[in-house]
Amino acid sequence: MITRDDAVVAATRIAGRVRRTPVVEAEPGALWLKLEFLQHSGSFKARGAFNRILASDVPAAGVITASGGNAGGAVAYAARTLGVPAEVFVPVTTPSVKVEALHRRGAVVVQHGSEYAEAYEAAAKRAADTGALFCHPYDQAEVCAGQATLGLELLEQVPDVDTVLIAVGGGGLMAGVAAALEGRARVIAVEPETCPTLHSALAAGGPVDVEVSGVAADSLGARRVGAIAYEVAVRTGVRGVLVGDDDIVAARRALWDRYRVLVEHGTAAAYAALLTSAYTPAEGERVALVLCGANTDPSRF
């Protein structure tokens, strides 16, 4: 379980290590864009990576993580900054732009399996064998608390925000932000129809495995939502909505056409909820959209 207090502790711990990303008022008095893709390593994941590593005693073997690409990039960046070795397991389907970034940041990269869950199993075994510190992409308290610092920032930047829309894969960002905003603003969790981890968990009364596919699977392709994310979602009343692949593709294009913002498909899922009937703000509702990552290949836009 994590709370706003954990977010405050994390904010102090990682101060000076992460960027305070800007907020843009996209529609006056109605919609704000939190430009978290400007974070180190190209996604919000740097917050959780720094908090996890700085809160731990790191062994000589360094750190290990599994990732669709973004968590690995964040752990590699944080590890290099802090001077510790990093090994990152990713599926063979991970986009080359993300794999190349891992190499540039000095990580040992192991490609294993066709989806994140298979890379995760191999990484967990490797960590057990070597004694390295395992950095979970989304289901560790320190990781979620690090992501929660984004919520604290957003409240300072848009103090009277009513609703925050967040794309969900494993749920670490949603868990952190919902904990930071608890009692202050609502969180809407947006998932692809092809990777409905939170939606399925809420229907089943707990995390369950789901089939993973679709255009956003490289960043939102967890097979099940994290236990922490599920607990926080239930506790804080997070509402989940689903969007289709075609809507995600259209939302990615619309973000570029309207705001000249180029993000990955997983990030665009949150905007797709506003462009469809998945989520319709009430009259006068003040909405913030977290644009959480942009590790994408511009040539494939």
Rank of each mutant, 00 (worst) to 15 (best):
M1Y: 08
A10C: 13
A15R: 15
R19F: 11
R20H: 12
V24I: 15
G29P: 13
A30C: 12
W32M: 03
L35A: 13
S41V: 06
G48D: 09
A49G: 14
N51M: 10
V58K: 00
P59I: 11
A60M: 00
A60S: 03
V63A: 14
G68H: 05
A71D: 04
T81S: 15
T81I: 10
G83D: 11
P85E: 04
A86F: 10
T93C: 05
P95E: 02
S96R: 15
S96E: 15
H103D: 09
G106H: 09
V109S: 14
E115K: 11
Y116E: 09
T130L: 06
L133Q: 13
F134I: 03
Q140M: 07
A145Q: 06
A145P: 05
A148I: 14
V158K: 09
P192R: 09
E193Q: 12
T194P: 07
L198F: 14
L198W: 09
A222R: 05
A222W: 04
R223N: 11
Y230R: 04
V232A: 08
V234E: 14
R239M: 04
L242W: 03
D247H: 12
W256L: 10
L262I: 09
T276E: 00
A288Q: 05
L289R: 13
C292V: 01
S299V: 06
R300W: 06
F301R: 08
